[in-house]
Amino acid sequence: MRILAAMSGGVDSAVAAARAVEAGHDVVGVHLALSRAGGTLRTGSRGCCTIEDAMDARRAADRLGIPFYVWDFSERFRDDVIEDFVSEYKAGRTPNPCMRCNERIKFAALLERAVELGFDAVCTGHYASLVETPDGLELHRASDAAKDQSYVLGVLTAEQLAHTYFPLGATPSKALVRAEAESRGLSVAHKPDSHDICFIPDGDTRGWLAERVGAETGDIVDASGAVVGSHDGAHAYTVGQRRGLRLGVPAPDGKPRFVLEVRPVTNTVVVGPKDALAIGEISGERFSWAGRAPEAAELRCDVQIRAHADPVPARAEVRDGSVTVWPETPFEGVAPGQTAVLYDGTRVVGQFTIDRTVSALPAATLSAGV
């Protein structure tokens, strides 16, 4: 096959490209320039896609003896990922930029160009597995549960899966990938992983958003509507947050309070006890299926609401253009804008963006402030 290897400059994508070469494929490396004003150097393990990362990717490609190019996707990344991130926060939702990047950049814009240029598949260093079955291609969790990235790939469609290649899916551990990189003479063998939002490399999401959304003071209220504090910008708060609330009125029971809701229209943050974070129902209209769609309108599945959250057994229903999920045990701290990924065992069934949440507590209990 003709393979386009997306090389981020990290160890995973370098080893994935090496395995594609070793498997006998015709491989070309490409690094995506996602910012025209990126920092020259990384800071520890923060960020990715910097000039230094591009240089690391080129050195890896040279070591593998494959052609290498840098493609400027900065404008598309700005419009489809960064602007989406800002607009979601303005609307009081909590977005996942990695999901949007996979959906709109790596497996849409990049894959579209790759196919146009005659490549059969895009190779990445994601930890996930593709399984060929009589019913078609399926996306599954990786062998290494600690590194599994199937959650952030849940946005891929059947057509996109048909043109993807994940060489690391069956690797038992990241340590083995690093050891392999060292044995192949790849200079990125011990390069630290990136853990932050790539376009906020210093990790100060609150400050970054304040510059773009604005910081207007407002009230922090409890579930009954009583003012218990103030904030310098609702965008800086996320559902489930406990630290940094600076509440002037203690809870009647003396227990900590958490962010329950962000209301951008009124610039209000709602707080309450930990029990009030329990969510008994989630739903969303923006959904897609990873491979074949479910045959029935109702299905039993496991649902994961964060990249590293434990999956929760649930019942899901597809009706009237939306997906609704009822977990067997309540989710905790779910915010609109997050992505829910549905699993059947290790197989990714599909995903949806959460538009609505319903508390697991009775309405009367919530209105009383618990």
Rank of each mutant, 00 (worst) to 15 (best):
V11E: 01
V11L: 05
D12T: 08
D12M: 07
S13M: 05
S13P: 06
S13N: 06
S13Y: 02
S13L: 06
S13G: 08
S13W: 01
S13D: 02
S13Q: 05
S13F: 02
A14S: 15
A14V: 11
V15I: 13
V15C: 05
V15P: 03
V15H: 03
V15G: 02
A16D: 02
A16H: 07
A17T: 06
A17G: 10
A18S: 12
A18D: 03
A18H: 06
R19L: 14
R19G: 07
A20G: 12
A20R: 04
A20P: 09
A20T: 08
V21Y: 01
V21T: 08
V21M: 04
E22Q: 14
E22Y: 07
E22P: 10
A23L: 02
A23F: 00
A23D: 01
A23Y: 00
G24P: 13
G24N: 12
G24C: 14
G24M: 13
H25D: 03
H25S: 05
H25R: 04
H25E: 02
D26R: 15
D26F: 12
D26M: 13
D26C: 14
D26G: 14
D26L: 15
D26N: 15
V27G: 06
V28P: 00
V28C: 06
V28F: 01
G29R: 04
G29I: 08
G29V: 08
V30T: 04
V30N: 00
V30L: 08
H31T: 14
H31N: 14
H31L: 10
H31K: 09
L32K: 04
L32V: 08
L32N: 05
A33D: 10
A33L: 15
L34C: 09
L34P: 04
L34G: 07
L34F: 07
S35G: 14
S35C: 13
S35H: 08
S35V: 10
S35M: 14
A37D: 14
A37C: 13
A37L: 11
A37P: 06
A37E: 14
G38Y: 08
G38M: 14
G38E: 15
G38I: 12
G38K: 07
T40N: 10
T40R: 15
T40C: 09
T40A: 15
L41V: 14
L41S: 13
L41W: 15
L41C: 12
L41G: 10
R42G: 10
R42M: 11
R42K: 11
R42N: 12
R42V: 12
T43F: 10
T43I: 12
T43K: 10
T43Y: 08
G44T: 06
G44M: 07
G44H: 09
S45C: 12
S45N: 15
R46N: 14
R46E: 09
G47V: 05
G47P: 05
G47M: 04
G47W: 02
C48Y: 08
C48V: 07
C48W: 06
C48D: 09
C48L: 09
C48S: 13
C48H: 09
C48F: 11
C49R: 03
C49N: 10
C49I: 04
C49A: 11
T50G: 01
T50Q: 03
T50D: 02
T50Y: 02
T50E: 01
T50I: 07
T50R: 01
T50P: 01
I51T: 09
I51L: 12
I51A: 08
E52S: 04
E52F: 05
E52P: 03
E52M: 03
D53H: 05
D53Y: 01
D53I: 02
D53T: 04
D53W: 00
D53R: 01
